[in-house]
Write a protein that binds this DNA or RNA. Structure first.
Lengths: 199, 199, 199, 199
DNA sequence: TATGAATGAGAATTCATTCAT
DNA sequence: CATGAATGAATTCTCATTCAT
């Protein structure tokens, strides 16, 4: 068997199939976790044999790893857009939340949630953790800007970040692709998580 | 042969050891998921062999099941206390949040997050889902009371519940027992999740 | 599953079974090579399942590794006895050859031949190679003693060692336990390899 | 469709490439054994994909088979030359040894060692075994001629053949193409294996 | 109560092989 | 001629589970 694994990512046929694979994998991992997902589960969704997956990915661990890289990219994109839109801290947070959930429940999804870090091998774990940490840091910085410009109330930014990211990360556990619900999430989450419950 | 599995919960020696086991299991499950956790993982934490666990539990599935029952109990308790404390809807929500996280990060923890419902066998799945649904319903009712009494702003209670529960459920993914952080969570989470970011 | 792998080697029941396993494995490896031997092949000879082997050995690589350690021990023993017997270099070589083949074709056998070094993992490979090198060195030293004391003719000791060791190492490829042939080997090999063909 | 497999060996382009392939295969097989060698290993050495090998050979088994045929041919050649050179038995043996190692370590090499006969399919196995047996028989006959003409001492010709062939077969295990060492082998092996160690 | 020993089912992974292009 | 893509069979390995002691 000769592998394409060395090829440039630009090879479109290959890249497309591989991307479909990552989505299928992300879906499964969100549903049943890394260990709970067999390669057959993923392959079945694609109408392939489990062995065929090895044409696109070196092993199962790399599958999660790639899923995480994709997730990190998606998160970064949402963050970039929110920041470049400008406005005060509160507005940026709100827009970030909207962009993030839009991507997660949209065509780009499903995106793997960051809950299987222990399954990654050390190098990958470090890389993914670093990406994740950097994302959190940017979010916390956004909060601090809001606090500074007066749009956000004084708070522990670390805990606030944890709370909000948790709510976002949990979405894939209960959202399974229903379009109506997707719209609901996009409409409600940014508000709930930024403005709270107070009347 | 008298199997211990039939004994009353009042049999204290047995009940105690069993409870330790459920905590150890909850810890592992939160960390690595159901399939990612081997019985040896759990046994190791207790200084036992995996075979010994079968004295306390019929099989692995029952272990999660019991963990989930415990989790449901803990959630119900927090809810009961919050409701019986009285006050307006907003105050109840806030107190519920506090009681819930207090239990999660305190001595009663670790509490298993119900994130692997599909691994349960049908009867157990139904039971646990019902418990979980009933908990959500109570929470949504609480929100509705708040909306009715004017303490909570108009909102989609289902989505709001999802957001808040997600934030709570995510805690075990990043909290690993540090007491200082535990205090931080208890101090901040109820506020963040009820009052949002607005200044 | 709780493993005995950590126990002291002195645990007799365990050690005995394990030793039987190593012999069975050596037999198979000699016959069909490392990759050509499946764990089922080895297990079948012992009336066990392949899974049962994992109770005694961490993985297949460790199985060869242990076989090699056993082989190295056997070789060293033969060498030790030959040296301690004294006499001139030629006599020592001849006795070494006899002791070595006696062990190989006797009750202690089968002994795995050193032909699957590439299958070992780096640390083990290094260790085994070191043992093997040290054995060769001792043999070459023996030859040099013989040259010095005049009992052995001038020769390239390295090549001579290679030739003789090759003849010995090849034995398991064609000898499969027949007692008559075993006797033949013991009777003939030491002479052929030390005295050559000359009349 | 005209498959190349039917072509005459005289078809030079094809024959050449095929020969390169057999050498590459022999090299791999000697190194890691039949099962330990994947077709990719062989293909890599030739800068091809594994699939391409099927243009030259029906399947993997045929690859070893062809390697063994080539080995038998090479051995026979050495034997033929040694016999036709004339002289007494001892001289013939000695020359045979020289011719044999010359081929093995020279440009005609690498030559596959017939150490995995069991992997051949029955017809091939029988054929190769017959060739191998006939070679051994010729060697033993040579020894007997030497005993008869007084140039070789009385000995068990079967065991003597085993010892000498073992030493030769083992060469590829430690010789990996170094030209200086090649010369050393050619210079020393014939002497060591025919004349022994005596001073 | 708990362990040692073993098993069987399933999982990841490799690899020879095929075939359309 | 050669490759890309895929498959099915075999193999290693893990793990829940059992049972005698």
């Amino acid at each position: 068997m000769t592998t394409r694994l060395a090829r440039k990512p630009a090879d479109s046929r290959f890249a497309l199939k591989r991307d479909r694979m990552l989505k299928a994998a992300a879906f499964c991992f969100n549903q049943k976790g890394y260990s709970g997902t067999s390669l057959k589960d993923v392959a079945d969704q694609l109408g392939l044999t489990d062995a065929a997956l090895y044409y696109y990915v070196r092993n199962k661990e790399e599958l999660v790893y790639q899923c995480y890289l994709r997730a990190a990219e998606v998160g970064r994109e949402a963050m970039d857009r929110a920041v470049s839109d400008g406005g005060n801290g509160f507005d940026q947070v709100r827009r970030y939340l909207r962009y993030h959930v839009e991507i997660m429940v949209g065509d780009r999804g499903p995106v793997a949630i960051m809950s299987e870090i222990p399954s990654l091998k050390p190098e990958h774990r470090d890389e993914v953790l670093a990406l994740s940490r950097s994302h959190s840091t940017r979010f916390e910085a956004m909060l601090e800007r809001g606090i500074a410009d007066g749009s956000i109330a004084q708070c522990d930014v670390r805990m606030t970040g944890n709370a909000i990211m948790g709510a976002l990360n949990w979405i894939p556990k209960w959202f399974h692709g229903d379009a109506t619900i997707a719209q609901n999430i996009v409409d409600e989450f940014p508000h709930i998580l930024s403005s709270g419950l107070k009347s």
